[in-house]
Design a protein around this nucleic acid. Sequence first.
DNA 1: CCAGACGTTGTT
DNA 2: GTCTGG
DNA 3: CCAGACGTTGTT
DNA 4: GTCTGG
Length: 255
Amino acid sequence: MCYDIKTSLEKQLRRALLDGSKADAQEIAEKLKIFTKEDIELHHASGFKHPQMFIYTQETPDTPTVATWGLVPEWVADKESIWNKTLNARGETIFEKASFRDSATNKRCLIYLEGFYEHHHKNGKTYPYFIKHKEKDLFAVAGLWSEWQNELGELLKTFSIVTTKGNLLMADIHNNPKLPEPRMPLILTADMESQWLDGKLAQNDIEKLIKPLAGDKLVAHTVGPIKGKKASGNLPQASLEVNYAELQVSQLGLF
DNA sequence: CCAGACGTTGTT
DNA sequence: GTCTGG
DNA sequence: CCAGACGTTGTT
DNA sequence: GTCTGG
């Protein structure tokens, strides 16, 4: 799964500012004193190394916190050894896995996305699809976060995106024959969002929230390459529709 | 997708 | 070059 | 007891 | 930090 953590930065920044201003991402970032102009340029130009994102936690549910993608549990000695292994957390096991259980209990968060990417396999080729919500510009996905301290006492906030079984739409798109089943991020409806951030909610009730959003709430279209030489990079145009002639007669029947 | 292996003998 | 494992 | 893992996906 | 496998 590939998230639009790169391309939705601008909308994230707008949301964070909580006003309808037409300022561009850099102006907003400077106002927020979260990212510098250089950070934004680097973000747009860079690949996948330690991407930063806004998360919304129970402590400050209305104010975003900057966190690095790839949860580093507080007890880890070397953050490099784990950060890119914890981009996702399987919803089925977040209360069992050593890396996630403390966060599952005490540090749940929300991340807002415009959509995410999956690759469809057909005749030995792969085609990237962008999947978004039919009704929402930005939707919340469930996350877990953690605060790690290095030997100098410096704090690093990190997060993982919780995944769940893929719905019917995902089963059609995400048909990599090597995978046992499709997966998708845990997308939350508005009332589930507040529950996910409710620190008093029992484990049993949290687990009830971990289920795939119905496929008819999502819509998908093909996009240009998102990785490699021809990729457009960390820019909004990465999610623009691009059609492939060989897919014109869709066998999926869904889009 | 990409990185890495890709092999056999049996005393180096 | 092609397959496999991650 | 101690060393080692602690994770998910398959193009983030 | 805590659990597992050896």
